[in-house]
Amino acid sequence: MTNYLYYPGCSMEGSGRSYRESLEGICEPLGITFEEINDWNCCGATEYVSLSTTPAYAMIARNLAIAAGEKKGTEPLVAACSACYLNLAKTDHYMGQQPALNARINDALGAGGLHYDPGTIKVRHLLEVILNDVGLDKVKAAVKKPLTGLKVAPYLGCMVPRPDVDGAYTNHEQPNDLDRLLRALGADVVDYPLKTECCGGHMTQVAPKVGLELIRRLVAEAEKREAVMMVTVCPMCQINIDAYQGEMNAMFHTHYKMPIVFFTQLMAVAFGVEPGKAGVGREYTNAKKTLVQALKAAPELTLAAAGVAPAARKPRPDKRALPMPRMADSEVEE
């Protein structure tokens, strides 16, 4: 069991509850444990940094100081929410880069009896931890119910691959991280070029026309690519696309019904957790039916789980349909 410090963030206790519930279901199969840091506070999202600089960063740094105090070895601090992750990582990064900012933040932290030396805590996002520390082999080995035939659009959103202060991503616009993970669960991952486009963040609250248009683009593209659900890593993306889809439909006279779930929910379900226990069904656009249908429709479930049946392949297009040079099937199989 590898232990990590864990910063849940406010949404995990409210609108993003299914993220937390499903996270609980995947820790044991993956051999990791998360230790929630004590009495953490809100990271301020993108709101506080728009109001005032020093207090915004001091508020974030309080969490880093707490984590530094609870650290036993070299374990990193893991956040699942994209905005929380970025705020924590950015604060550590800027404090190390800007001595004046570091001095002001530590002066403020001192008023609460705290101190933080930049670089003490390594902040990481949950998805990156699962991919790089746990590894896809372990994920594949934990799959009991492969999501065969479930066509999903991998939606990563902005703040995990960008601005990437720690240089964890080689591709900031079309990374395939979430694709690879979902494929390891057996899902049929559609090509989704808008995977790191913005959901609008707080725009649904402050400039609805702008926000709803961004949501429309994302949902329309997922539908066009024949995905039956979108998969996200961020509570803000989830609630925007889920809860505001109705208002978006009304505005653009469309009729989309695209469910969106957290990647941990699909992991939990593939690991054998009951969909309801993984928080599936808390969406406005219910994902449960789609998911259960997909699980039922996959005939080689048990065989594949036992490693007997090969993963389903896309049927090859008719030879006459493609005026392109192709290898013979026998060569491909080999």
């Binding site: 009495d39 020093t54 008023a111």
Partner: peptide
Amino acid sequence: PHQIHQKKQLQAILRRADELE
């Protein structure tokens, strides 16, 4: 609302941060 235990500590930090800003 959910609330943290050490609200006073957080508020002391933020008051000082306000002054510095």
